[in-house]
Write a protein that binds this DNA or RNA. Structure first.
Lengths: 118, 118
DNA sequence: TCGATATTTCGATATTTATCGAATCATCGG
DNA sequence: CCGATGATTCGATAAATATCGAAATATCGA
């Protein structure tokens, strides 16, 4: 995952309506939700919601799939995992990373810590 | 952690120079790095770097502490942990959350899953 | 095919954000 | 106290983003 992709993903989530939409999709799970359902749930005009959903999709955070007249959006969990791994990558430069620093609890996902060691 | 805080944090990280600076701080660990060192490392004017660092600080992602003439910045790992927990909170609405959905690996931190259900 | 429904695209506008030099503030060494 | 160093604040300007109605694009049911 390169920096540009990460920035696009973070930027996509850094907006009231998009963050709320994404969280609804996370909670909805694989089933997903229709664009209209999201718009209504958030009290946002359809055209605005569409704009936001396209941002999330372009960032790879959600997937879309047409189902009759509706377009169902669902969260892409792999993208979020990759995002989190990127943020904490090589935490503390490979040093012990004691509980005191706070970077062990949940941040340092197993997939981090491993790259190089310094 | 409320939505507004999360948005501020995500927005703070969704920028080339700030993301780079934050990652340098994550890798630097508790020792941290001086504002000037970051500016030089990223090839950004001091005033611009200062602007970006204040954004990160205001978002609670980094801490600052004066050391003689320099101001040392360091990453606040707890904030990142909280951020990640928020994103995957109540993943899949409490349903099994099978490996197939991809939300188990590292995303669903132990602290999620718990709030309400559905 | 026609009308209704679901969503997206377009265009115009308002807001927010990023950039950087110059000026200011704080600290140190002598 | 003074000059030098490290950092931030202040302007002004440029660029990116959010908003929303109207129009366009699919899909369905009859």
């Amino acid at each position: 995952m390169d920096a540009e992709t990460v920035i696009r993903a973070l930027g996509a989530l850094a907006q009231e309506h998009r963050l709320a939409a994404y969280r609804l999709l996370v909670q909805a799970g694989p089933e997903g939700l229709a664009a209209g359902a999201l718009a209504e749930a958030l009290g946002v005009p359809a055209s605005s919601m569409s704009f936001h959903l396209s941002q999330l999709a372009h960032a790879g955070l959600v997937q879309q799939q047409r189902q009759s007249r509706s377009i169902i959006y669902s969260a892409d969990f792999a993208a979020m995992n990759a995002l989190m791994a990127y943020m904490t990558e090589n935490c503390c430069g490979g040093v012990p990373c004691t509980a005191e620093t706070g970077c062990t609890p949940a941040a340092a996902s197993p997939s981090s810590q491993r790259k190089d060691v310094a």
